[in-house]
């Protein structure tokens, strides 16, 4: 008889089924619950309202903007990591991990101070004479993207750092000796080799941002509504659980499609094997 590792998987499997698969199945089942039996009326109700559709698009946009923000900040930090010695590398990892040890809620509240009327952003802009009076980035999408970018930055830096620390340094040296300038080395060697990490980071950042209820609610405020708040309103205020389930399934589905595309991209033969 072939020895099987299956018995050892049972505890983990049981935990996953009981606390993930089952609730998820329940959620999906709920979403089809109608007045008189199973129906699609919850979906029709949600997608039929142009406001809801806009919220869905806003949520996707928020995710993409945060992906862009974290990428624009993450790549230079990753390059600094690549060019640094052991000590600076450790410092970069340490500084990346420290914010992750702080609760999302605490960081969100810190951003209220930074984005507010008396915050450093407003004060600096006034001191530079770029704005007449104090401005507030609170309750704006820009402020939300700024906060989300900072909160989710580790999710893109860590995969990048993981890939770069395994990358042999002589790859960029080989490019230099071949005659490539710094820009060409970046575009033709480092960037393609960082792509698997970027794809992984994008998946994490997008999923995290589009579902970050607390930050969206506190910094986005009542005027900027995203899908998680919509769900919360149905559950907590209107007590329409079947509709809330339908919205959740739609959010899961749209995010899932994007993640599927990204993870299919990361299976490209040129990207596999050095990630």
């Amino acid at each position: 008889m072939r020895a099987s590792g299956f018995p050892f998987l049972v505890p983990m499997l049981a935990l996953s089924v009981a606390f993930f698969a089952l609730p998820l199945a329940l959620l999906v089942a709920y979403s089809f619950a109608g007045e008189t039996g199973p129906s699609l009326e919850n979906y029709a109700k949600f997608l039929g309202d142009p406001f809801n559709f806009r919220v869905l698009l806003n949520t996707a946009r928020l995710g993409l903007e945060t992906v862009l923000g974290t990428t624009l900040l993450g790549i230079p930090i990753a390059l600094l990591f690549w060019h640094s010695g052991q000590r600076v590398r450790q410092a970069i990892i340490f500084l990346t991990l420290i914010p992750m040890l702080t609760s999302n809620v605490v960081r969100t509240f810190a951003w209220i101070v930074i984005l507010g009327r008396q915050g450093p952003i407003s004060e600096s802009l006034m001191a530079l004479g770029l704005t007449g009076g104090p401005i507030s980035l609170m309750f704006t999408e820009l402020g939300l993207v700024l906060a989300m970018t900072q909160i989710d930055l580790p999710l893109i830096i860590l995969p990048l750092v993981a890939i770069l620390s395994r990358l042999p340094r002589n790859l960029t040296e080989a490019a230099e000796v071949s005659g490539a300038g710094p820009w060409r080395v970046f575009v033709t060697v480092l960037l393609p080799l960082m792509l698997p990490a970027l794809l992984a980071g994008w998946i994490l950042v997008y999923a995290s941002t589009s579902a970050s209820f607390v930050t969206q609610a506190v910094i986005g405020g009542a005027r900027n509504v995203y899908v998680p708040q919509l769900i919360y309103r149905e559950v907590g205020t209107l007590f329409d659980w079947p509709l809330a389930s339908a919205i959740a399934v739609v959010l899961l589905f749209t995010t899932g499609i994007l993640l599927l595309v990204l993870s299919m991209l990361s299976r490209h033969r040129r990207l596999v094997g050095h990630g």
């Binding site: 042999p168 002589n170 040296e173 080989a174 490019a175 080799l193």
Partner: peptide, 9 residues
């Protein structure tokens, strides 16, 4: 180079 440093992509 030592270990050739071929571009893997």
């Amino acid at each position: 180079f030592q270990n050739y440093a071929l571009f893997p992509h």
